[in-house]
Design a protein around this nucleic acid. Structure first.
Lengths: 225, 225
DNA sequence: ATTCTGTATCTTGTATACAGTGTACTTATA
DNA sequence: TATAAGTACACTGTATACAAGATACAGAAT
């Protein structure tokens, strides 16, 4: 058997990053609810580490806006209001537009093929699988577009904004009535990108996001009642 | 005499935030140069605190992209390349466009007056003061527009992106030839916002940023030679 | 009964100690 | 002289100890 040291090297992650990812997921998936306090000792015991990595992870969550720091009191999970969601989606829409325009300019033939494959994969997964897998396939499709922009900062921001609404997107994807439209929009986007029809592509992307706004807001209203 | 306890309360800042702001400024102003290592003990001694607040500040700088973490080696100031600057400005342009459009919709009479004052102040400071003050007056003008968007997330991102190019904007403002155009653009922006002429306003903002791109890139090229 | 005060405790904020890893320098050997 | 190995040191990663502020509750005084 061939031991693969390289993989082990790359798999090294400081505890703070493990904690960061863990807490992040817990918040985005709703396991840690808005308003809930994040107490260091308690978390440290739960995760089997000391307070130091916990604190450093919380510092990063703070900067991402996922937790709210109250001086000398500690951190709590930030509220997610309808307003804050609208704000995120407003920004996201502008950046998605930018992304698709840049992609029209820069995409390679190889990447177009990747997009087509991802769209196929998405369609296939829609039929059989659970919501999480569907969400991942959708993310993958959009990731290809992001990557084609060749703008590192834009990619980072879009990923971040996307994750902010993770749990709402999942809810939204639970409604199978929306599936045919999603598939159609994916195909339209590919076609327009392929032909470098920026305006058309932008239009579809806008519609794509606007639909999400409606759906996400519905989910939030539901949860608050 | 009336003692103001409230102010004292609000002035409390954890050491980590003091350190964060200090290091951030030092990086953005170029006092800490790209590639330079940030060694914890050294910084702790220099700033007269322990390693803990230093580390927590570095975690935040890491997430902002201002420092690069190398596992088991430590932090160093992130490189600022021409490409990374173009990327930032590309995103910033899209968000500035969004901001000015939202502002057209939402701005109040009171805020328009504030804008006019800020533009006046800017014009006045241009004549007498040093570059830092000019830059601050410019930032203030744009902050009013940001605030009028009533989108917290957008404001946060724009502030962040703006600070990323702090030192280059300062360089750019050292050239007095550009001043008349800046003043004219400010006034045009106000006029279009006032009349809610979204397209026109967007156009000026684009031009405003495009000018900056050229200037910033020039500065970077100069510094690298 | 209500309010104020004092105390105990809980939590964060900060400092420091300890372990492990990477790096650089020195020394020995070819 | 060049190269390789070994050793010492420097720095990060993690844990823990200590200080100080916040909170909650109990008891006393009005």
């Amino acid at each position: 058997m061939e031991p693969n040291f390289k993989v082990n090297m790359n798999e090294y992650l400081p505890l703070r990053d493990v904690v960061f990812n863990t807490l992040r997921q817990a918040i985005l998936r709703g396991e840690l609810k808005p308003g809930e306090r994040l107490m260091e000792i308690q978390l440290a015991n739960k995760l089997g580490v000391s307070r130091t990595p916990i604190r450093e992870a919380i510092r990063k969550l703070e900067l991402e806006g996922l937790v709210l720091m109250i001086p000398r009191k500690g951190a709590e999970v930030a509220d997610i209001t309808e307003k804050s969601m609208r704000d995120v989606l407003e920004v996201r829409k502008a950046l998605e537009e930018l992304a698709v325009q840049l992609t029209c300019d820069k995409i390679t033939k190889e990447q177009i093929r990747e997009l087509e494959e991802a769209a196929e994969e998405f369609k296939r997964i829609l039929e059989s699988s659970d919501v999480t897998e569907i969400a991942e396939a959708d993310v993958h499709f959009h990731d290809i577009i992001y990557k084609a922009t060749d703008n590192q900062r834009l990619i980072q921001l879009l990923n971040n904004l996307g994750e902010q609404m993770y749990r709402y997107r999942v809810e939204y994807l639970k409604n199978p009535e929306a599936y045919p439209q999603l598939v159609a929009e994916h195909e339209e986007i590919i076609r327009h990108i392929e032909r470098k029809e920026k305006e058309k592509a932008t239009e579809i992307v806008c519609k794509h996001i606007d639909n999400q706004v409606e759906a996400v807001i519905d989910v939030i209203r539901m949860k608050n009642n």
